[in-house]
């Protein structure tokens, strides 16, 4: 059901459970107050639902609809460049729902891919990380889902969040498959792990299948 494709060198189990979290995206497992962090200028939030895309109004659809994404990238770049030097390389960009960006770009996959490429460049330039979430089921019916395939290709770590085959349960909310390509220069180490998870009020519990009774 869910698909988290992202390149995050650290913090393996960042929140891949976007729709459950809604607009609050977990930053740390232990739970942290995002509102407080926002006031501390450590957390910056762009609401994609109310984001006003310049030239995006439905009536002037002739205009280039990529303007919104360019502007968004500009904002991100501005935020990062305004950060003090020592914090610049520890930035994590979290995109909750790439499919919403496609909506913003009126279905232009290329614009969204461009945007992701730009953000990806930031990660290699500044050493920050990029976590992007998408929904795999949207693309399951199309023959060559470029967007999701490219995202998967670019990702260093791929996290798939799915419901259990047996459905939802009170104690296990779903399973994660984490594919770590390990492209950290040490050859082709390639790891796949499987976790079960349970979302709690302040954190998410991860455990190996069968380790809970």
């Amino acid at each position: 059901m869910e698909h988290g494709g992202g390149a995050s060198p650290s913090n393996l189990l960042d929140d891949a459970v976007g729709p459950l979290a809604g607009r609050f995206v977990a930053v740390e497992d232990s739970g942290c107050n995002l509102a407080a962090q926002r006031d501390n200028k450590r957390f910056f939030f762009f609401d994609m639902l109310t984001w006003e895309y310049p030239g995006e109004k439905i009536r002037d659809k002739e205009k280039t609809s990529g303007g919104g994404l360019v502007a968004l990238y500009g904002e991100i770049q501005k935020v990062i460049s305004d950060l003090p030097q020592e914090r610049k390389n520890s930035v994590t960009i979290i995109i909750d729902d790439v499919s919403l960006m496609e909506v913003a770009a009126k279905g232009s996959t290329n614009l969204v891919l461009d945007f992701l490429h730009y953000c990806h460049t930031l990660t290699s330039e500044l050493g920050c990380s990029l976590v992007a979430l998408n929904h795999e089921d949207i693309y399951s019916s199309s023959e060559r889902p470029t967007l999701i395939l490219q995202m998967e290709y670019l990702a260093g770590i791929l996290i798939k969040a799915e419901p259990l085959a047996t459905g939802l349960a009170k104690d296990v909310h779903g399973q994660l498959t984490v594919l770590n390509r390990g492209n950290d220069g040490q050859g082709s180490r390639y790891k796949i792990c499987n976790f079960h998870f349970r979302v709690k009020e302040n954190n998410v519990e991860y455990f190996y299948p069968g380790s809970r009774t």
């Binding site: 609401d47 994609m48 639902l49 109310t50 995006e56 439905i58 659809k61 919403l100 909506v103 913003a104 009126k106 279905g107």
Partner: peptide, 18 residues
């Protein structure tokens, strides 16, 4: 107009949320 409707839904969701 698939994308227009989606975009309408997106903004409706945003408006309702607040």
């Amino acid at each position: 107009m698939e994308w227009d409707v989606l975009s309408f839904l997106r903004s409706l969701k945003g408006m309702v949320r607040s």
